[in-house]
């Protein structure tokens, strides 16, 4: 029991450290580098995807449990994420009727 407890604590601390590092790297890229804006943007998006992977593996137990539930929930999550991100970009870019 206590060994299991320790292992899960280690796992959580590692996940926490990874997510903090990714956050600070994103901040550093945005605030303290002189890269062109488009490169910064791509960098932040890549870091965000890595952050998502860290969250899924270390905190959301994506590697455990029933495969079918994991696939369904990941699939639905990706569907909603694409709808929200792509939909928002589409709507905000082509908001031209009143300009």
């Amino acid at each position: 029991m206590s060994q299991q407890k320790q292992a899960s604590a280690k796992h959580h601390v590692a996940g926490y450290a990874f997510s903090l590092v990714l956050t600070f790297v994103a901040l550093f890229v945005a605030l303290y580098t002189s890269l062109p804006a488009s490169v910064k943007l791509i960098g932040i998006v890549v870091l965000a995807i890595l952050q998502m992977v860290v969250q899924l593996i270390y905190f959301m137990h994506v590697t455990e449990g029933s495969k079918i539930y994991q696939l369904l929930s990941l699939g639905y999550g990706i569907f909603v994420a694409i709808v929200v991100v792509a939909g928002s970009i589409w709507i905000m870019l082509y908001n031209t009727m009143t300009q």
Binding site: F79, V83, V84, G87, I91, Y94, N95, T98
Partner: peptide, 21 residues
Amino acid sequence: SALSFLVWVHHFFTMGNGPWI
């Protein structure tokens, strides 16, 4: 549940979206 995430723009049709949207 799936469609509920695909309709939100109808709350602001009049905000000047393009005709496709």
